[in-house]
Amino acid sequence: MSGSSAFVISNILPYLCGILALLLLWQYHQKQVLTGRIQSIDIFDRSGIRIYVFATPDDGQICKACWEANGMVYLPSQVANKDFVPRGSSCANSGRCTIVMAGMYGAWLEARNVVHRLRAAGRTGSLKLSAQELSELLKGNWEQSVSAATDRLAVLMLAALSGEKKNPEAAINAYRLAIREAKEVHDLPLVVPAYLRLAEVLVNMSRTDEALALVQEFEERYPREGRTRPYDPTETQRGLMAIKKSRLKTASVGRRA
């Protein structure tokens, strides 16, 4: 009997050791994820996005509904819902407000705290960041985190939206970067808002020729003809740029007359 028991133990011992090793490896992996050293990717969600931040520029032209939603943060499961609406009510400017829904993995400390708060929020899957909390999130040490490459354009875009007045040159650089370098699916929604805000900032700085060239670039990148692609500008956004182009041409002619 003892010989039989020894035989059984000797047979299952490698499996027990394997299970123990997997448990230790899993615990190590969890610690690495919690400290932001590695990314945890859901096998059912290959985007690598854990939070979405809703933001608007602080330019005094944003409607109340859009402005009140500024700083809202959502779980991807909420955003993916077909009935998802980021605002409490519809845009009072009929979609003319520039809004951004920036997706991030968020591996740095401040972002991880937001992720934990979101997950603790339960079924709502959302929370509102104060202006200070949003600022602290964007000023965190994201560049040294494992998600820096994933989150770079989103962080710079969000910082530009809130800092257009204080540092317009930094905003211009961030918008140009989004326009030029957004290639991943999670970054593509940033491009059209970047065009819209960049044009606005250039106009406000009286850089008419640059603004006009930008609008023309926008029209070439998003021609009306052909198949509609995801993240193409809406008709309202096309109309805003067309109006801006007309005004810029008039201003340019008047300046040279």
Rank of each mutant, 00 (worst) to 15 (best):
S2R: 13
S5N: 04
S5R: 11
S10H: 08
S10T: 09
Y15E: 15
C17R: 15
C17G: 04
I19E: 07
L20Y: 05
L22Y: 00
L22H: 08
L23P: 03
L24D: 05
L24V: 04
W26C: 13
Q30D: 09
V33I: 13
T35D: 12
R37H: 13
I38H: 02
Q39W: 08
D42T: 10
D45H: 15
R46V: 09
S47F: 08
V53G: 00
T56P: 02
P57Q: 07
D58V: 08
Q61S: 14
C63L: 13
K64V: 13
C66D: 10
W67C: 10
N70K: 05
N70R: 07
G71W: 14
G71L: 08
V73W: 11
P76N: 11
S77L: 01
K82E: 03
V85K: 15
G88Q: 10
C91K: 09
G95S: 09
R96G: 05
C97T: 08
A102Y: 14
A107Y: 04
L109C: 10
E110R: 07
E110I: 07
A111V: 06
A111D: 13
N113S: 13
V114K: 05
A121I: 02
T124F: 04
S126N: 13
L127V: 03
A131Q: 14
E133N: 11
E133D: 07
L134C: 12
S135R: 11
S135W: 05
S135C: 00
E136W: 07
L138H: 04
W142E: 14
W142F: 03
E143D: 00
R152E: 02
R152P: 05
R152Y: 10
R152V: 02
L153K: 06
A154Y: 06
A154S: 12
M157T: 13
L158Y: 05
A159T: 11
A159I: 01
A160K: 10
L161H: 07
G163S: 14
K165V: 04
K166M: 04
K166Q: 15
P168R: 15
I172P: 00
A174G: 08
R176V: 00
E181A: 06
P189H: 04
P189D: 01
L190R: 01
A194C: 02
A194L: 03
Y195S: 04
L196K: 01
M205V: 02
M205D: 06
S206Y: 15
S206V: 00
R207T: 00
T208Q: 10
D209T: 05
A213G: 11
L214V: 02
V215M: 04
Q216Y: 00
E217N: 12
E219D: 14
E220F: 08
Y222E: 05
R224S: 01
G226M: 08
R227A: 12
T228H: 05
P230E: 06
Y231W: 15
Y231N: 13
D232H: 05
T234E: 12
T236Y: 04
T236N: 06
G239L: 01
L240N: 03
I243F: 06
K245Y: 02
S246P: 00
T250S: 14
A257Q: 11
